[in-house]
Design a binder for these strands. Structure first.
Lengths: 210, 210
DNA sequence: GTCTATACTAAGATAGAC
DNA sequence: GTCTATCTTAGTATAGAC
């Protein structure tokens, strides 16, 4: 079995896969909590319950471990949010459901909240990870919404892509400001109020073309 | 003249003020570029053109320097955006103008873009700075918009606070996704298209009550 | 393949000269 | 008040035993 330098894992034996899993689980806890620079490999090895050298035998270096871990988390985050691929049904119910899913899956999951923070924090140093996140999570979300808007002309949305950005972006900024930047300690704006207003906006568009 | 341990500066002599200024200017460049943990005091001293000990005579430690610097930048960012206090005039023109000002001042200013990234990155380690930013920049922006919406009932906005969050939040998320997370490399969504759609939303609300 | 022990480097902070 | 030189700790990465 050859050494595995990057996150590209090809047919690893069960034993190796299990060790890697163990390392990644420990590393996730530390990196998400402390950020990249503050995380020490000593701390990771302690958290994962393996020696430092074992980590270096599975991953090239600190950067390699970090990249593998962020890639995995990003995919997991995507799968968690977009469990339903096709959007169908009454807009009023469906869009509300979409908003609820995203807010619940990300805002209420400390890991995915920390992932978003970490992606932003390291966007300069790891642009490829930021792009992966944008592509996988944000872009996909906007695309699905955009397609939904476009396939429902009765909504009267002239620019579905822009509307998708506004809809999804409002949710993203809600999470960042209210949950990360302590906005909810300064003004309480419940999720229901946000979603209600978002719904009103989408619905009111349609009334103008009737 | 007593030593100045924190960012609270009280009547410093011109010479001292000038040195502090010199240190802060150098520190700003390094911290905004590298982030907190990656920034070394050696690098700051080199960038500022003073010795390390001079920094430590003006600021308690790395944390103290960082806090002073972020506080100053946050205030400057606020003043840059909210040069106009009172919002008046035709909604269609004025709201468009507000959006343009925010997008221009933050997205096109690498310092304020980096400030936002740094605030998010260090929101766990420096919650007081995150709160200051939210309070000073975000909250103020939402408040002004909210008051404007509330004082213009002809717009037919049922929840001005929520609408202000959606309006301002769409701009914030646009900056984060498009400018920081390389969104504009994946899909181009021009500022004009975003602002146009935002305007349509606000205007279409009013049509429903006529 | 995994562990213990260690080399090497860098960074925060301070001592002491001027 | 400012500089040079230094102390001390901590962190990445590796060498060598089992």
């Amino acid at each position: 079995m050859r050494k595995i330098p990057t996150s590209q894992i090809e047919n690893p034996s069960p034993a190796i896969a299990q060790k890697q899993e163990q390392i990644l689980q420990g590393a996730i806890r530390v990196f998400l909590q402390e950020g990249y620079a503050r995380t020490s490999m000593d701390r990771v090895s302690a958290e994962a319950g393996v020696s430092k050298q074992t980590i270096y035998s599975h991953f090239q270096d600190k950067e390699g471990l970090f990249k593998a871990l962020i890639e995995r988390l990003t995919i997991a985050c995507f799968q968690s949010i977009f469990c339903i691929e096709k959007l169908q049904g009454d807009p009023a119910i469906l869009l509300r459901q979409v908003a609820k899913i995203y807010l619940t899956k990300v805002a209420d999951n400390p890991d995915y909240l920390a992932l978003l923070r970490l992606i932003i924090a390291e966007s300069q140093n790891f642009p490829e990870l930021a792009k992966l996140y944008t592509q996988t999570v944000v872009q996909r979300g906007r695309q699905i919404l955009s397609q939904y808007f476009a396939s429902h002309p009765e909504l009267g949305i002239s620019d579905p892509e822009a509307m998708a950005h506004i809809f999804f972006g409002s949710l993203v900024s809600y999470i960042i400001v209210q949950e990360m930047l302590y906005g909810k300690e300064l003004i309480s704006l419940s999720r229901d109020r946000l979603v209600d207003s978002l719904m009103n906006l989408v619905i009111s568009q349609s009334k103008n073309i009737q």
